[in-house]
């Protein structure tokens, strides 16, 4: 007998499409997932759509237009469980760099007719607009963590996504600390785990694409980065990338923006 499967929807706001692509990148798990849930709304993959309500909504992207600010309200009403996927949806993304500038100037730099462009002055996280049940970090998210979130939802348990720093992942991976070992500036001490410490594994400092960890001490890290030769402008820029509008990173960048 056919059992009713939970309905999954994937929604896009301002983004690069990379996080929803991560679902299609689950090459080994995709068909199994498609067997456990009903893919009710996922325009990147299929033109077939099923009406809401939806049991699990995955939301990619940030809110940058008045239309999108209204749309997320409607999606929330139709969703039993709403999970944001990626840095854009959880912090505003790289497009939140406009929050530190004048968006009219930005539009004039890119477009000959900025008056045709409808946009908000800020790019904001989904949680600033509606209640979010779970936030998955990363620019992009990790496919392993995405499968964990969907599995946890199906099993009715909390997803296991440790909130500690990338430093712990480096220790688990057995990496030499790039900061101590060869003086390479690294945001690992203040950055949320999840990627598996990829950058240090490639002899590169972490650049914070998973956003701030729980209770980060960014001012202390900045003092160390400064000793490694980063000037105030470099310190401002290092926190202003893909999670520039996440509170801990925003505050620390503003401290160096004088």
């Amino acid at each position: 007998m056919d059992r009713a499967r939970p309905k999954l929807a994937v929604w896009k706001f301002a983004s690069c499409d990379g996080c929803q692509l991560s679902l299609l990148d689950c090459e080994d798990e995709l068909l199994a997932i498609a067997g456990e849930v009903e893919i009710a709304y996922f325009l990147e993959a299929t033109r077939a759509t099923v009406e809401g309500p939806y049991d699990l909504s995955l939301v990619e992207g940030s809110v940058t237009t008045a239309h999108d600010a209204a749309r997320i309200q409607d999606i929330r009403k139709q969703s039993r469980f709403l999970v944001t996927i990626g840095a854009c949806a959880t912090s505003g993304g790289v497009q939140a760099l406009r929050n530190f500038a004048d968006v009219r100037e930005y539009a004039a730099i890119v477009y000959a007719r900025p008056d045709y462009i409808q946009t908000l002055a800020t790019s904001t996280a989904i949680a600033e607009h509606v209640k979010v049940d779970f936030e998955l970090r990363g620019c992009p998210i990790s496919t392993r963590q995405l499968v964990e979130v969907i599995s946890a939802f199906l099993a009715g348990r909390k997803p296991q996504t440790p909130p500690h720093s990338v430093c712990v992942e480096c220790k688990i991976a057995g990496n030499l600390c790039v900061m101590v070992g060869h003086g390479t500036p690294c945001l690992g001490p203040v950055t949320h785990a999840g990627c598996g410490a990829i950058c240090p594994s490639y002899n590169r400092g972490c650049y914070g694409c998973y956003g701030p960890m729980e209770t980060p001490n960014a001012p202390s890290l900045s003092a160390w980065l400064s000793k490694l030769g980063m000037d105030e402008d470099a310190l401002k820029r290092v926190y202003r990338t893909f999670n520039a509008n996440a509170e801990a990173f925003r505050k620390e960048s503003e401290r160096h923006d004088r």
């Binding site: 692509l21 237009t65 760099l97 500038a101 539009a107 730099i109 890119v110 992009p140």
Partner: peptide, 26 residues
């Protein structure tokens, strides 16, 4: 919705362009 990459690239270091522009398309 527009994301204004060409605007926020101004005043970034040349070394940052590969990681910043990658985010135009996943």
């Amino acid at each position: 919705p527009p994301r204004f990459f060409e605007a926020f690239l101004r005043d970034r270091m040349y070394t940052e362009a590969p990681d910043l522009t990658a985010r135009i398309c996943g």
